[in-house]
């Protein structure tokens, strides 16, 4: 029978949970190998960052939804962490194949990369749970009035939208199990960033544009047709 919005949301939540059951809360053996292959092993920083970002997330989730729902926040964060490690491994495998490189020291020691990747994983989890709030239906334990939808996660992690934007396409490429609705949601996040958020005063986009401008035009403008 055709699915009601609630049934569809419940199914995608169940699918996400089943899907991530096999993924661990810690870096996998393959990830540990990538970390060891780095000039500077990022393992300790990765685990410390996860710990500190988890505290931030729990606190803000509790503030937004209510202190009695901190357990819900922990559930969501756990799913987010599993997806974060899984997508990271998948990304590194494809980069290894594309670049014939095993040492990803610079990337894996880049805090912005990790924070953006975790934020994107959490946004997928929140969108999967929060789907009902867009339909205004109370089915995931969170009242529709609490808006945890994008760009809430950027504010929690104090992450620049432009940095979040950088991981979206690679995230979708690396995680074939994403549902059509979630891919569409991430695409909407891209539009939202490019149309407005990335142009806010404190965005790193301006610095990038300034650098590009100083470097001068890379390509000559095409001559006008006579």
């Amino acid at each position: 029978p055709p699915q009601t919005p609630v049934r569809a949301a419940m199914n995608s939540i169940a699918q996400l949970r089943v899907d991530l059951t096999a993924s661990g809360d810690q870096p996998s053996a393959n990830l540990a190998v990538y970390f060891k292959n780095c000039t500077v092993d990022p393992t300790k920083e990765v685990l410390q960052r996860v710990e500190s970002l988890s505290q931030l997330f729990f606190q803000r989730f509790g503030q937004a939804v209510g202190p009695r729902c901190v357990g819900l926040g922990k559930q969501r964060f756990t799913l987010g962490i599993r997806l974060y490690y899984r997508v990271m491994e998948s990304m590194l495998k494809s980069e290894e194949k594309r670049l014939s490189v095993q040492n990803f020291s610079k990337l894996l020691n880049d805090s912005t990369f990790h924070t953006s990747l975790l934020a994107c994983a959490l946004e997928v989890v929140m969108a999967t749970y929060g789907g009902s709030s867009t339909t205004g239906v109370y089915s995931n334990g969170v009242s529709p009035e609490t808006d945890l939808s994008f760009p809430w996660i950027l504010d929690v992690f104090q992450l620049a939208a432009f940095d979040f934007y950088k991981v979206i396409e690679s995230f979708i490429k690396a995680e074939p199990n994403l549902t059509k609705d979630i891919v569409k949601h991430l695409e909407r996040c891209e539009y939202q960033i490019m149309e407005s958020i990335a142009w806010r005063g404190d965005s790193p986009l301006f610095e990038l544009l300034r650098q590009t401008h100083e470097d001068g035009p890379v390509e000559q403008a095409e001559p006008t047709a006579t």
Partner: peptide
Amino acid sequence: SHDYHFGLEDHEGISELFDCD
């Protein structure tokens, strides 16, 4: 099953986007 518009070129990936190439 989705119709996401991939925009990165073959020679571009997450390493380039984070200036780690």
